[in-house]
Amino acid sequence: MKLLVNSVEQTFDIGKQIGEKVSPGDIICLEGDLGTGKTHLTKGIASGLSIDEHITSPTFNIVNEYNEGRLKLYHFDVYRVYDPDEIAAIGFDEYIFSNGVSVIEWANYIDELIPPSALYIKISKDLSKGENFREIKFQYSDTRYDYIKEITL
């Protein structure tokens, strides 16, 4: 499934709809170039989880934890991870196999650590339509993510 958005607000809204439907243990892998909207989508997911904290990309921390919502949110940014052992050392498995929701920006950098049951969301610019257009593609094999079919713009 894919959606075409043309604003930050639409990207946020898609994330919010996802956040309202996620379950404990969901793993959401975000892929896309710099500036495509991965963090905006994550902010929407946090909003859908009723997390009021300011969401920032954990580029230098690797993971930010948000504990005050419907479910805990673990927001990873592995852009600067050069060795999968580095992320394993912070207890990655304990986060992703917990009762929280894990959102992993740049997940393609650590593919070998991602369980096959994850939801993949790829965001890419569609400059043929205009500067602000993004194509958001969803891919998953686990039926737990069938809620994606209900997302609307």
Rank of each mutant, 00 (worst) to 15 (best):
M1H: 03
M1K: 06
K2R: 12
L4D: 10
L4R: 09
V5K: 03
N6K: 13
N6R: 10
E9G: 11
E9D: 15
T11P: 02
F12G: 09
D13A: 13
G15W: 09
K16T: 14
I18K: 01
G19N: 05
E20S: 11
S23R: 15
G25P: 00
I27C: 06
I27G: 04
C29K: 07
T36I: 00
T39K: 00
H40F: 14
H40K: 11
L41A: 13
T42A: 04
T42R: 01
T42S: 11
K43F: 02
K43P: 07
G44S: 03
I45S: 10
I45C: 06
S50P: 03
H54G: 10
H54M: 13
I55G: 04
I55T: 03
I55D: 03
S57P: 04
T59N: 01
F60M: 08
F60C: 03
N61Q: 11
I62E: 09
I62M: 08
V63L: 02
V63F: 05
N64H: 13
E65G: 02
E68N: 15
E68V: 14
G69K: 00
G69W: 01
K72I: 01
L73D: 02
Y74N: 03
F76D: 10
V78A: 04
V78R: 06
V81L: 11
Y82E: 14
D83Q: 07
D83G: 08
D85C: 11
A89M: 05
I90L: 08
I90A: 04
G91C: 09
F92E: 12
F92C: 11
F92D: 08
D93L: 03
E94N: 14
I96D: 00
F97S: 12
S98N: 11
S98K: 13
S98M: 12
G100D: 00
S102I: 09
S102Y: 09
V103S: 13
I104M: 12
I104C: 05
I104L: 09
E105C: 07
E105S: 03
W106L: 02
W106A: 02
N108H: 11
N108F: 03
Y109P: 00
I110F: 07
I110S: 03
E112C: 14
I114E: 08
A118S: 15
L119D: 07
I121H: 08
I123D: 12
I123H: 04
I123M: 09
S124G: 01
D126I: 13
K129M: 10
G130Y: 05
G130W: 03
G130E: 09
E131A: 08
N132K: 14
F133K: 12
F133Q: 07
F138Y: 10
Y140D: 01
D142Q: 05
D142L: 02
R144I: 14
R144D: 13
Y145S: 01
Y145R: 00
Y145P: 05
D146S: 02
Y147V: 07
E150S: 15
I151L: 13
T152Q: 12
L153P: 02
L153N: 09
